[in-house]
Each structure stands twice: as structure tokens, then as C-alpha cells.
Design a protein around this nucleic acid. Structure first.
Lengths: 349, 349
DNA sequence: TCCTGGCACTCTGTAGGGATGAGTGCTAAA
DNA sequence: TTTAGCACTCATCCCTACAGAGTGCCAGGA
């Protein structure tokens, strides 16, 4: 696997092999390449070049007399050598715009819509990670008494996302009492990011303990329940949509075992989350091709991902998962456009 | 296909074939049956009986020299002839008890948990239909102002289920104003089922129009937005969990086409809902075997379903979907136990 | 009349062999 | 350096042969 600079001719041929394989899912022969490239070369010459490409690790050979197929390295070369990505068709852009509901929405719904949108347009599996609660900035908090010793905490984040959580009360507060507390809490914590609030609460509680202001103490306890995240609960939050699209891919219908292993990888969200986390603070589209992701069961898959933001804060990641043999330019455009639209939506409001 | 009363011997043999096939997924031969039943009959005799059973439509023959496999009719006979269903193992019952969160919960979460529970314990696809909003009885309603011209309506139903919906306001009400309205609305409509509220609203609005009480008029408009269902939105509400369990069934891994057709059936929730609707007001476990359900793509599947209730009101249906070759007694016990636990939970609070 | 042993028959699944076709690898000549 | 040509390699398809599983049927026995 000698790492060598490819000649221009080799690059053209490699690109052609990749494009062809992406289209057909069949190994590509030298004759096909000779016909498709306009280099005016005979199949025999192409064969020599392809043989070199195989030596350098860009192509592989299922068996002697089959055509060549791209390796992960070849896809990587192909993706890196892509120049301008052609934009999506107008209808698709419109579809993206229209899919998002306007106004404040619950985060689950929004992410659900996004993953459905991605899987629909890509015809592959769509992937969305929920915003890390640590990155949420509190805008407004409210408690509603549901029944004795139980209330719902509703809070809206700066990005206009609605979160709600049901909390058990130590004491049976009236709605009035709850309103008093929210008044105080909003004044105190509005505009702060959640992790900061967390530490502020600790500080306040220590102080209040001395002064012993019962109301404030209670307010602190409540807000802790409402806003402070138990690490394990919302940390595994990835939404996958359209996983059945995987069933349509010829490479997987032919090989049920591959398919099953992919689905089993889908079931372990925490591993997916690890991959996503690394993309979160990246710029633009991130692509993981084949075994570039460390999930063994997904070594036949590529991920195309893009962070989405509120202002400058990266909230989460969205993307698609499909076979390594996917239409990268299209997927990149799609994922980027969706991330942009979602980010704009979250930023504007 | 002569419909005839089966002899006791034929029944025993038929049951044995069904049980065997459920266990192995392989056609069952006469020798196997001879060994398994303690009738003291030779394979040849068994063969004669099996041949009769084939004539009467209970067994089928993939080809001359294969064993017999049960038809849908045979499964139906088997299910009907089941006597006492053995209860679930203690750990499984405990698992069911523990899976449900206590206290008020959002309906989506509750149903999600239920479908996951069902699919986990059955190792098949779990199915839960959301309560028809028409059957919900209002206990408490609240509005929270989120930002200008936008509020969240939160209402708790008698079964302790939390619903919330974001509504756009025609006028920019203050929170105070909203509270006034909720006070009135709760007094007026608390304890009524939603369809009744719907018609009451219409009545009130007509009356208010004459008296022209602005506050009440506004309250009516708001509650209409909050409580009255747009037919199409929440009507397709079925949650499927663990559909990938289908991948594990040998009959489907062997036949990718069957598998794909089942998954495509899963994608069209409205057809599932039709089936479910018919079960909603039934008593106890309902079973649809193979083509007893009208979804062509699911003719290799059986559904075991059970309505769940709040008091006497049937709210929705839960169940499992698996291959016709499923362990009916176990699934029946599982589905019944889950429905009971959920119903109790919804009734008690 | 019912049961059973025996045997022929049928069908599947697997293995082997030959033909076909796609595609490569190599070589010698341009 | 390129290319034409040819030998070679596999995969695939089709056919045949064969073993194994299981039935269908018949004739004899209880």
C-alpha cells in the first residue's frame, strides 16, 4: 500500500470507477471505463492503471475475473476531490423549508420531523442528535401544579425549544406559591446556560441555608429538579428515521447478515453518540466512510453529518447513514441544507 | 375443504403439528408426530390422518415429500382450543410492573415505554395505539404564555395523562388574562369528555355572541384551539416498537421479499389503525391470524391484541405482531398482563 | 373396519461437470 | 508508452446424479 501521488489519468479513472460503482453497485470492468472516459485509451491500458490503483489500495477485486470496486480509501479520495457541490433541486429545498413547523415547538417533535425529512429525501436512514441540554440557554421557566405533590416544569430555551418535565414535590405547593417561585427564578436565571445555572443553584442554596429564606430555598430545590440533568437520562439521545430504507439497498438485500449487523448497530445509540460528539464542534459537513467510523458492524456504511446551531452555539448534529456506496455530493448538499434551515429556525426566534 | 368435526385423534395430531412447527419453523413429518404423541400409532396411520387434515384445509404441503405445515385455519383451531393460558413467569410480571413510570406522564412517553416493553418481552414487534382523543375526559386545563401571540395549552385527562399543544393566539393575552380564562373553563368543562366539550363550546359561543362577553368568547376560542382535534393530525397514531425483531425470525431472514413487504406494511399506520379500531371495544385478547387481517403484505403475520382502559372506557389497544408461527399462549398472557397493568395505572390515578 | 409394515415414488438439496461469458494478466509488437 | 491478442481465471448457469426425507398406497393382520 504505497502512498503515492496519483497521476491525473489515474485520478480520472479512479473517479470514474467510483461514480460507476455508486450508480450500479456492480464491479466495474476496464472496458466500461474505456468507453466512459474520453481519454482515448484502450481497455488494456486502463487495466494497467487499475492494477496500479489496486496496488496502492484504492481498488479491490472480489475475484480475478470480476471488475474492480472502490475501497474506503477510494471513496475518501473521491469525496476529497469533489469541488463545488451542486445544490439541491428547487423542489427539494422547498420541501425542506416547508417541513419545519413555525413557532415554538417541542424538541422531540422538531427532531422527529427532521429525521423523517432526511430519510425521505435521502432514501437512507436519517440521523439527528438532540441538543445537549448543557448547551441550552434558559429563557423562561414555569411550573404548573398537576395534582398534590406533582407539578410540570416547562421551560423555553433561547432557541425557542420547549422542554417539559414532570417533577415530584416535597411539599404540596399551591399554584400561587409556584408562581412566586418562578417569578424569582426567571429574574435570577433567565439568559443563563444550564450548566451555569446548575452551579449558581449550588451557590444560592449554600447562602440561603444561612439566611434560611424558606421560599427561595424551595425555589432552588424545584429548579434543580426541573433544570438539572440526570446525566444518564437524556444523554443517549439520537433519533434515527427511515431505517427501513436500508432494506432497499441492493448490497444489503443480498446479504441479510450485513443488514442484521447494521440494525444491531442502530440499536446501540450510545456508540452512535460517540461518533456524533466528535462532529459536533466541527465546521461544515463531516463524512465518515466505511471503517472510518469505529463501529465494526457499520463498516459497510458511511455517515454524512453536519452540526446545527443556535447563533454560534453548536446544539446537535444531523445527517444520514447509508451504504459506503452512496451519492456523496447529493447527500452533502442535502445534509448541509437541512442543517442550515434548522439552524436558521433555531436562531431566528 | 369440507368443514367437518375433527376426531379427537385428529385434534391431538393437529395440535402436535402446530406446536412442533411453532418450535422449529420446519415442516413436520409423520415420524416426528408418531414419536411425540403418545397415541401408540405408526407413522403410516398418522400419515392418513394428516392427509385428511390436509383435505379439510388444516395442513399444507410445500411439496410431496416434505412434512406438513399448519395453515392459518390450523393456527385458528389451535388458538381456539387453548384452555387455560399459563401465566407469565414471575420475573416477567415484575418487569411489566416496574417498566411503567409512576405519576402523571405524557402520553407519548407512556406509549413508547409500553411498546418497548412489549417488543422486549415478546421478541417481536410491539404495537400500541394512542388513546383516541375523543375518549379523553378533561380533568384540568391550563394555558402558559410562551411569547407574544403564542401559548401552550396543557391539559390533564382523568386517566392522568398529560397532553400539551402549542396554540397561536389571535390576541396577545397576558398570563393573567389566560389564567382568568382557565379558571372559567375548568369550572365549566372539567369532567366532561372532549366530544361533549366540543359541542358545548359551539353552544356557548352562540350564546356569548348575543351577550357579547369578550372574555368568555375568547376563552371559548382558546379552548377550541386547545381541545378540539383536527381530525387528521392525531388520527394516525400507532406506535410500533422493536420492528427489527422481525429480522430475527427464520421465516423472514430466508425470504427478504416477505420481510420487505412486512416493513412496508408497517409504514402505513392508517391501515394498522383500521384493524385496531375493530378490536378497541372487544373483550379480552383478540387474535388475528395470517390473512384474517386484511393487509395483504402482512398475511404471514399474526396480531395478538388487547384493549386497555381507564375505568370502563376503552382508550386504546396494545399488542404484538409476529409471524403466524408464534407462541400464542405466551403472547396472549403477555399482552393481557401488559394491558391489565396499563389499565390499572390509568384507572387508579 | 381399522391399523401397520413395506415399498415405490416424489421432491429437495447438494455435489460435480461442462459450457458460457466477463474480465483480467501478460507479452510482444507498434 | 500504448495496445492488440491470447491464455487464464472465476462466477454463473444448466444439467445430471444421488442421497435423504417423507409421502401414498397397498396388502396383510388384528
Amino acid at each position: 500500500m504505497v502512498e503515492a501521488k496519483l497521476s491525473e489519468r489515474a485520478e480520472i479513472i479512479l473517479r470514474t470507477v467510483v461514480q460507476n460503482y455508486i450508480g450500479t453497485a456492480e464491479p466495474v470492468g476496464s472496458r466500461t471505463i474505456a468507453k466512459m472516459t474520453h481519454l482515448g485509451l484502450s481497455p488494456a491500458t486502463i487495466r494497467n492503471v487499475m492494477s496500479d490503483l489496486e496496488d496502492t489500495g484504492y481498488l479491490s477485486h472480489p475475484h480475478t475475473s470480476a471488475g474492480r470496486m472502490p475501497t474506503d480509501l477510494a471513496y475518501r479520495f473521491y469525496v476529497n476531490s469533489l469541488g463545488e457541490i451542486p445544490p439541491l433541486a428547487r423542489e427539494e429545498l422547498e420541501k425542506i423549508e416547508q417541513s419545519f413547523p413555525s413557532g415554538v415547538r417541542e424538541i422531540d417533535d422538531l427532531m422527529e420531523v427532521t429525521s423523517r425529512l432526511l430519510s425521505f429525501l435521502s432514501q437512507q436512514a436519517g440521523l439527528v442528535s438532540l441538543p445537549d441540554v448543557r448547551s441550552v440557554v434558559l429563557k423562561h421557566l414555569e411550573f404548573i401544579r398537576l395534582r398534590p405533590y406533582q407539578a410540570m416544569a416547562v421551560f423555553v430555551s433561547e432557541s425557542g425549544i420547549l422542554h417539559n418535565r414532570i417533577i415530584e414535590l416535597d411539599e404540596d405547593f399551591t399554584q400561587e406559591k409556584l408562581d412566586q417561585m418562578t417569578g424569582y427564578l426567571n429574574a435570577e436565571f433567565g439568559g443563563m446556560p444550564l450548566p451555569r445555572i446548575r452551579s449558581e443553584i449550588v451557590k444560592h442554596m449554600a447562602r440561603e441555608k444561612e439566611q434560611y429564606d424558606q421560599l427561595l430555598m424551595n425555589a432552588m430545590r424545584l429548579s434543580q429538579k426541573a433544570l438539572v440533568q440526570e446525566e444518564n437520562v437524556e444523554s443517549g439521545q439520537v433519533i434515527l428515521g427511515g431505517t427501513t430504507n436500508i432494506l432497499k439497498q441492493p448490497e444489503f438485500t443480498a446479504d441479510v447478515d450485513k443488514m442484521r449487523s447494521i440494525f444491531s448497530a442502530f440499536e446501540d445509540k450510545s456508540r452512535l453518540l460517540k461518533i456524533i460528539d466528535r462532529v459536533l464542534h466541527g465546521q461544515g459537513v463531516s463524512i465518515l466512510i466505511g471503517s472510518e467510523n469505529e463501529i465494526q458492524e457499520m463498516k459497510n456504511c458511511s455517515l454524512v453529518m453536519h452540526p446545527y446551531t443556535c447563533g454560534d452555539r453548536a446544539l446537535g448534529v444531523l445527517g444520514v447513514i447509508g451504504p459506503t456506496r452512496m451519492e456523496y455530493p447529493r447527500m452533502m448538499a442535502l445534509v448541509a441544507a437541512t442543517a442550515q434551515t434548522l439552524s436558521r429556525l433555531l436562531t431566528e426566534r
